[in-house]
Amino acid sequence: MNRKAALMTLVLACAAATAVAGPLDKTECIAPAKPGGGFDLTCKLAQSSLMQGKFVADPMRITYMPGGIGAVAYNAIVAQRPAEANTIVAFSGGSLLNLAQGKFGRYNENDVHWLAAVGSDFGAIIVAEGSPLKSMKDLVAAVKADPTKVVFGAGGTVGSQDWMKAALTARSAGLNPKSMRFVAFEGGGEAITALQGGHVQVYSGDASEAEQQMKAGAKIRVLAVMSDKRLEGSLAGVPTAKEQGFDIEWPIIRGFYVGPKVSDADYKVWADTFSKMMATPEFNKLRVERGLFPFAKTGPELDAYVKARVAYYRTLAKDFGLNVAVAK
């Protein structure tokens, strides 16, 4: 058995090493933001899981293509690199929200192959460690007192999911979301830097991202998580928004897509690889380390989910009076 197993491993390794034109050779993950945010986190999870499970021979290369919370990368993949089988691009619920609002230029959700969702995250209300705001109630009171004094930072501009989270908070407190002062950043990493620098007072980001940053030593504090129940791990002590009297839930799925002209065969190789990888306990360990919650979908199952989600975001955007892209 041992020999057989060793042989199998060797064969697999050789197959990986010799499959020169295969999709898993010289892989690249595009994080459509600057380093440090949720996209970076997603790519890094894929990078380490694939490497640890020896699904790839060389470490996956992570490149950063910031611009419009994935918009630039989406355009680049659809228009310029549609057939690059070994390139996967990270996406999040925010990308789907932007697609629903037509913020990805002339493309919509049918223009790429949705590959895999690797986990889920939840919205979080984050402040600097030294902030006088201690709860959601404090925050709402401060906004009510002077909306110009409380500046919301967000990855992405008006209509982005960070904006949406802040807007939902404002709406549940009876405030007009458009009266909030708002600064857009190119991804969550920048927003957390600005939060610590005092350039913004509140960041409506993601729980996993906050957890990662706190582990890395960022001087920030989470006021609330937007999940149905308290999270596990280091954020277990943070009350949900619901607990504090604000009925807001904001799950964020994280995953990958590939270009529209990637062949069905290559797509299947990728999808099967992710399915296999996500079934391993090593992956689960790495996922938990990165503060992501179980949400594993690949192939057609994910495709259906994404499309349903985009449809839901369309109605939400309509509710907030935002631009809505016409579904094709």
């Binding site: 611009g67 355009n75 501009t157 708002f182 857009a184």
Partner: peptide
């Protein structure tokens, strides 16, 4: 074209 927007959006 508004694809990218950073800063005080409004």
């Amino acid at each position: 074209d508004g694809l990218v927007e950073v800063g005080n959006a409004d």
